[in-house]
Design a protein around this nucleic acid. Structure first.
Lengths: 229, 229
DNA sequence: ACCTGAACACCGTTCAAGT
DNA sequence: ACCTGAACACCGTTCAAGT
């Protein structure tokens, strides 16, 4: 809701890095990450593509900056109570932010981002484990095990979004699935769960919570065993 | 070790889908997935880029086919003994294959692949759980929790590969890391573990096994609780 | 200091034309 | 049936030139 296509005679606000990054985030939110090209972003800002290089080193730097920007949206509230519930709350907060910016997983999957904001975020999470008395080694393995869920998302192997919209595609998919007895059993159980025969895709929010609880419980069990032994 | 740059007068073997896919896999293995463009792949096969469209619908179809090809390399051995050990063995077998083809994670992250080979693979894994008596619901959540590890890989959030090679980059990284107390503590613990001060990156194979065991143990615990209740 | 025009070296893909 | 040449509509990026 900004100056996107103002009258071209309006006094030109000079570009700067944050203006560029915010426009890129808005563009990705609206049209998807593939729409974020130097040319299109320039157009969005009323400027030629080459001008962007005055504020951003290259495309990679732009993407890093975008991730950095939205990472700043996750509030680093201090730990209260048990480390497990603190972790859970933080990861669900991260998930809220990622859901608002659906392109974040794809960018993070395509390139590692190690900005100060990212480090501050990870530092805060490691702090939860340490404050909770979890050993540094176990903390390390826990971070690996939780992986991208630390940032609020899970890598999805499959995608049922087109099947959800197009009934023909859904039927074709069903036809294929039923040829495999175990997949078929699983699919049928899923379908009957919601009383509805169609549209019962997986509930990714439920699976997210299920898995972080599974992992956190496992870590706690190892933590307790470590203390006893 | 094939006919890659033969004399151009050699009798031309006609192209077909498997020849195209195998060349693409070899190219990706050798030069990375970014080197797999229609033009370069055509060159590799002594043919113009446009000819490839006779054997492959488009670039996406090519990538799907490549994944399908290497997925076929994972042997679908039947289950023997406990489902947990069967699962473990299968996932480590998948990991072996993925390590030989490092580009697979990136392709799978960028696009869902739902080919018959993929379905057969997933069907086999679901079968392990079912044979082991795990409920269909729990099986479903387990599949989500294990995620891409079913196919032998974990999404890596960070990348220390350049720091491992370039000592200057490593020093700069260290300089940054030490500003965050918890990251610093974790890093120092890591470094002292191997008696060596430098080059002690994370052991991704260890972390892989750690996490699948953590998740499988958690699933088993839920399975046993389900049986009692 | 910031922006631009023109250019370079790439992409995926289509389509009419060849054999 | 299979392959090609030319073309289209895109990319990211550099660089000399403008103000």
């Amino acid at each position: 809701m900004a100056t996107q296509t103002d009258a071209p005679e309006a006094p030109r606000i000079p570009l700067n890095r944050t203006r560029v990054l915010e426009a890129a985030v808005a563009l990705a939110d609206r049209d998807g990450i593939d729409a974020v090209s130097m040319r299109k972003l320039g157009q969005e800002l009323g400027v030629e593509a080459m001008s962007l290089y005055n504020h951003v080193k290259n495309k990679g730097d732009l993407l890093d900056g975008m991730v950095d920007t939205i990472l700043g949206e996750i509030e680093l509230t201090p730990m209260e109570g048990h480390w497990k519930t603190a972790m859970r709350t933080r990861m669900l907060a991260a998930r809220e932010v990622v859901i608002r910016h659906q392109w974040v997983p794809e960018v993070l999957e395509s390139r590692p981002v190690m900005t100060p904001t990212m480090m501050r975020y990870m530092d805060s999470i490691i702090g939860f484990f340490r404050e909770g008395g979890v050993s540094i080694d176990l903390t390390h393995h826990a971070m690996h095990a939780i992986g991208s869920r630390l940032l609020g998302f899970t890598q999805e192997l499959f995608d049922d979004s087109d099947a959800e919209q197009d009934p023909a595609a859904a039927a074709a998919m069903m036809q294929q699935l039923t040829q495999f007895p175990n997949i078929r059993a699983l699919t049928e159980a899923l379908l009957h769960e919601g009383d509805e025969i169609v549209g019962a895709g997986c509930d990714s929010n439920f699976e997210f919570r299920f898995t972080i609880d599974l992992i956190l419980d496992g870590i706690e069990r190892l933590h307790l065993a470590e203390q006893e032994g």
